[in-house]
Amino acid sequence: MARSQETFNKKEKEKKRRKKRQDKEQKREERKANSDKGKDLEEMFAYVDENGNITDTPPDPTKKKVIKSEDIEIGVAKQPELTADDLIRNGTVTFFNESKGYGFIKDQETQESIFFHVNGLEEEVTENNKVTFEVEKGLKGLNAVKVKKVK
């Protein structure tokens, strides 16, 4: 009589493979039962209440507020339109380097230091001169242009 070809070790490996296959099948069935794919659209909706919390109940239409799109502020608040009088400022030349061709003016109202270049001068200026000037936005901040001495 011939002996069986299956040894104890082979039987144990086969048992492990069957157990692993059953566990895998069981996990697949659990995933199918708990998946969101079969839900209808209403069950997947999420709502935000008046406090900003996420809920699954739709908001009450009687508490609805109407908001105009003009009232929504994004980024920087609107600044009032500048007139020609607002653009002309007064100040004092605090620093001027003739050889390099630039200087700084201290604004009388805001006390901020504003850069100017000789190309923006309409008259010759020196340090401590009282001047009027207009401001424009430059690459690194405000620049003074149309700089004139106050007589």
Rank of each mutant, 00 (worst) to 15 (best):
M1Q: 09
K13R: 07
R17A: 12
R18M: 14
K19M: 14
K19G: 05
Q22H: 06
R28A: 08
R28V: 04
E30M: 11
K32W: 10
A33G: 03
N34E: 14
S35N: 12
D40K: 01
E42M: 01
E43D: 12
E43F: 01
F45I: 00
Y47I: 07
N51S: 10
G52N: 04
K64L: 15
K65E: 15
E70L: 11
I72R: 05
E73Y: 07
P80I: 00
P80T: 00
E81F: 00
L82D: 00
D85K: 04
D86T: 00
I88W: 00
R89Q: 12
G91K: 02
T92Y: 04
V93N: 01
F96N: 06
K106S: 09
D107H: 03
T110F: 03
E112W: 01
F115D: 05
H117S: 10
G120S: 12
G120T: 05
L121S: 04
L121P: 11
V125I: 15
T126Y: 04
N128V: 11
V131L: 14
V135Q: 02
V135E: 04
V135M: 11
K137V: 14
L139H: 05
G141T: 07
L142P: 12
L142V: 06
V145T: 07
K151F: 13
K151E: 15
